[in-house]
Design a protein around this nucleic acid. Structure first.
Length: 350
RNA sequence: UGGGGGUUGGCCAAGUGGUAAGGCAACGGGUUUUGGUCCCGUCAUUCGGGGGUUCGAAUCCCUCACCCCCAG
């Protein structure tokens, strides 16, 4: 008897091909659309109905059962609220990592298993072997960064067939299978919420937004005004509205004073870090061992940077010392530890 | 109201007689399942106002306005 696999189908190409490949391999596939968000936002109509329709169409094409799980309440609670609290605290959260941790590889997995599934599958560009997570084969699309907080147990119940392919191959497969979504544009933005400006999103949901404040440069001069410190993130260049000479990059902010600090000097030490403290560590298959050669990624799609040392502090946080300085390490973002292509785990930058 | 310097697009800034560089910002697009970064494109018929010289001026002259510095 073949395995029952529940595939998370978002209505995009990647998850469509995931379902098709598994079906082709002889699995007993069921498609599931997770409804995590349905609210329209300023300047954006929520695309969930279209996405649902697309996923459903593909399921019909493949001749597989299709259902919908409604996780809106949990998504709002676990992902959106977390995100809002982080922004209010002056940090820059990564909602998609939280979504994977709490929704896709926890809630969805548990619900599917209770529903009779043996495994789940998703359209992520990453690979799983023996409960270990590896980068996707296509370095350009690798999404292992976002999966850094899933558990080994979840990995042992998950398939990610797309991770073995490169994006153009996936597109080609979609056409070969004749999938309805073969030429659908890749999605962007906060997963499920859609393409909405972060400012618009925060304005909609954060109460008591601060007012305008000063933008202060490396010499302590007020060079401009901003409309709320929480809207800005470290390393940011666009959106400051301050011209004259060289571009400015955000190097820090003071939430209490509602001030944003910038520099026009690319050598400004506040823009570079080689010593990072990580809170909330999560090691997928156990803590890092000493003597291993690790590398770290401090943002999605950032270059891997070799690690000099990775040690546990007394208070449970971890200390990462890098071989090279990295630009714009940002509190709230995850630093993901790799051993070659293997994802060891991650922590959140303090 | 003695002298000197200055006024070029939102900002910085080239250009001193031949018909407005460049950078920043902004806007548009691309890349991107966070936020950013990054890449590409667009952006002064016009050079503080007025007048004059010249085939032709942002560039020379006159004048008015404002700013800065030194004298006080």
């Amino acid at each position: 008897m073949s395995k029952k696999v529940y595939v998370g189908m978002s209505g995009g190409v990647d998850s469509s091909v995931t379902a098709a490949l598994l079906k082709q391999q002889g699995a007993d596939v069921t498609g599931v659309y997770m409804k995590n968000w349905s609210q329209d936002l300023p300047g954006m109509v929520c695309p969930w109905k279209d996405d649902y329709q697309d996923a459903k169409r593909v399921a019909v094409q493949l001749g597989i059962p299709f259902k919908m799980y409604d996780f809106e309440a949990e998504y709002r609670h676990k992902v959106v609220n977390y995100m809002l609290e982080e922004y209010k605290a002056g940090r820059t959260p990564n909602p998609d990592i939280m979504c994977n941790q709490e929704v896709k590889f926890k809630l969805f997995l548990e619900t599917a298993l209770e529903d009779g599934a043996d495994m789940i599958a998703t359209g992520h560009y990453a690979r799983i072997k023996d409960g270990r997570l590896y980068a996707g084969l296509d370095p350009n699309k690798d999404q292992s960064y976002f999966l850094c907080r899933v558990t080994e147990d979840a990995l042992r119940h998950t398939l990610m067939p797309i991770g073995e392919y490169e994006k153009p191959q996936v597109r080609a497969l979609a056409r070969q299978f004749g999938l309805y979504t073969a030429n659908k544009k890749d999605s962007q933005g906060i997963c499920f919420v859609g393409k909405v400006g972060i400012k618009d999103f925060l304005r909609e949901f954060v109460q008591d937004l601060p007012g305008d404040g000063d933008i202060i440069d490396q010499r302590g001069t007020v060079v401009g005004r901003h409309d709320g410190a929480l809207f800005y993130t470290i390393g940011q260049r666009q959106g400051l509205g301050v011209g004259g000479g060289l571009p400015y990059y955000v190097v820090g902010k003071d939430m209490a004073k509602n001030e944003v600090y910038v520099t026009a000097d690319l050598q400004d030490p506040r823009l570079w870090h080689r010593d990072i403290t990580l809170a909330s560590p999560h090691w997928i298959n156990g803590e890092p061992a000493s003597g291993q050669r690790y590398a770290v990624r401090t943002r999605y799609r950032a270059d891997l940077v070799p690690v000099t040392s990775l040690t546990k502090n007394k208070d449970g946080t971890w200390q990462v010392l890098l071989e090279d300085e990295v630009r714009a390490v940002t509190p709230g973002q995850s630093t993901v530890v790799y051993e070659g292509e293997h994802v060891v785990g991650s922590g959140i930058v303090i």
